[in-house]
Simulated scan of single mutants.
Amino acid sequence: MKRTAVLRRVRRAARDAGVPYEVVELTNHTGVVVGGVRSTLGRHSEIDDVTARKFFDQFASVLGKGWWR
């Protein structure tokens, strides 16, 4: 899955849920904050599907269980 698609999916889900979304560029990663939950995503153009699912699952407490399906 493309990195931009991962970020777009999180951004849209946050907007639909009405929670704040913020992207912070760190040294080697991109920090994503959704409703107070912070996670990082590597700056690779292609993100492995397993990694993307684990990244999505970190926001389940804010966006709901299985929100990415």
Rank of each mutant, 00 (worst) to 15 (best):
V62Y: 02
F55W: 10
R38A: 14
T51G: 12
R8Y: 06
D16Y: 08
V32L: 03
R38S: 11
F59A: 00
R3S: 12
Q58A: 15
R9Y: 10
Q58W: 07
R11N: 11
A60C: 09
T4Q: 12
K2L: 13
D57F: 05
D48F: 09
L7S: 07
D49E: 15
V10Y: 02
D57Q: 14
G42T: 13
R53M: 10
G66S: 00
E25V: 02
A60D: 11
A14W: 04
K65T: 05
S45Y: 07
S45N: 10
F55Q: 01
D49W: 13
G18P: 05
T51M: 13
G35I: 00
R8A: 15
E25W: 02
V50Y: 11
G36A: 05
F59M: 02
D16I: 05
I47D: 07
R69Q: 12
D49G: 13
K65W: 07
Q58F: 09
R3M: 12
H44M: 14
R69K: 13
R53S: 13
L7H: 06
I47C: 06
H29Y: 05
R9F: 06
I47G: 05
L63D: 00
D57N: 15
L63P: 01
K2S: 12
T51F: 09
D16V: 05
K54L: 15
R12W: 09
L26C: 08
R38C: 10
A5M: 12
L41H: 01
A17H: 00
D57L: 09
R38T: 09
R12I: 08
V23I: 07
W68L: 03
T30I: 02
S39N: 10
G35P: 00
V23C: 05
T27G: 09
V37A: 01
V62W: 04
V23M: 07
R53I: 14
W68E: 06
R9D: 10
F56I: 04
E22G: 09
G66Q: 01
A52W: 03
G31Y: 05
N28W: 08
S61F: 08
V33A: 02
E22Y: 08
A60W: 10
V6N: 05
Y21D: 01
V50T: 15
V50Q: 13
V37T: 11
F55T: 02
R8N: 14
F56T: 01
V62S: 07
V37L: 07
D48H: 14
L26W: 04
E25R: 09
T51W: 10
D48R: 13
G66T: 03
V24T: 07
K65R: 10
R11G: 00
V33C: 05
E46A: 13
K54N: 15
K54H: 15
G18W: 04
S39R: 07
E22S: 12
R53T: 14
A60L: 09
T40Q: 11
R69A: 11
D57T: 08
G36H: 01
S45V: 06
L26G: 05
G36I: 07
R43M: 09
W67M: 03
V62R: 05
K54A: 12
T51S: 14
V50E: 14
Q58M: 14
P20G: 08
L41Q: 06
V19E: 02
M1C: 11
G64D: 00
V62N: 05
R3G: 09
V6M: 10
R38M: 12
R53K: 15
T51N: 13
R8V: 06
E25Y: 05
A17M: 03
G42H: 12
S39I: 06
R11Q: 12
A5T: 14
Q58T: 14
R8C: 08
